[in-house]
Design a protein around this nucleic acid. Sequence first.
DNA 1: AGCTAATCATATCGAAATGATATGATTTAA
DNA 2: TTAAATCATATCATTTCGATATGATTAGCT
Lengths: 144, 144
Amino acid sequence: MKISTKGRYALRLMLDLAINNTGEYIPIKRIAERQEISEKYLEQIITQISRAGFVRSVRGSQGGYQLANPPEAYTVGMILRLMEGELSPVACLDEPGSCDRADRCVTVDIWRQIKDAVENVVDNITLADLVKSYHEKGNCEYFI
Amino acid sequence: MKISTKGRYALRLMLDLAINNTGEYIPIKRIAERQEISEKYLEQIITQISRAGFVRSVRGSQGGYQLANPPEAYTVGMILRLMEGELSPVACLDEPGSCDRADRCVTVDIWRQIKDAVENVVDNITLADLVKSYHEKGNCEYFI
DNA sequence: AGCTAATCATATCGAAATGATATGATTTAA
DNA sequence: TTAAATCATATCATTTCGATATGATTAGCT
Ligand code: FES
Ligand code: FES
């Protein structure tokens, strides 16, 4: 029941962009420094994020990334799902027909409830909430 | 964010014992047949369960396992935790001091909320609930 | 006494996932 | 032209996962 580092890194990356959301394009290198995450690994991650249209990118010198939308537009759930896929405790919930006896299954209700509970949390927290929390906690450069 | 098959198998195993909770000792072989799970794999799993005192065992011919307590005494959470460890989305919540900046961390609140939400589900469903649901659904021999 | 069915205890294995590097092409401002 | 950046794959080492293999021990039954 763990969230992968990829998911967590993606969240930190997006939060970093949200905190530094000045209109300028921020290179991955800066984020890698601030977050102490491998630059190359972050590149892979932001590639996925970029393909999903969550960020704008400018190539070449002086290039970088910025949020495509205001921080309020991104829930934690959106970001985690991008890296992790559906936030289900079992595959059955997402692949229709993967369990052929779903109508008689006793445990699927549990998995459904877990999924709903998790989604209820992550879909109701936005990057804007995290930015606010960040400033309240004392402007520390680092977070996990 | 997946629950391992070990956790799910443990739940099915315990549910099988709960459904066949007649006072007799049930050999792993029977459960393996009914649940269509490898006998040897189930042995490993029930060894852990047995060491935790959740079941009584009798060795030798005519031996087997039975629940140590009535089905009401077992929550889904107890069983999953036995196989999965703590139901936390990040290790940080369980290993005190693993993150040295926890007081300034912006995301730890999210992980905490997720953990609480999951626990609120699994700690409020008992094997007795599942047995009831099983009988309501039509006595199917199989479930996942 | 001996056979058989069961638990108990480890060791090992293959495949997949994870987390990360490595290499290099392409683009663009200065 | 050069440097700094995104973009695109390939590769790698380690761990985890799910499962099997081997064999010792225990105890009921004939
Ligand atoms: S978990 Fe899929 S039908 Fe039971
Ligand atoms: S997740 Fe542990 S302190 Fe942030």
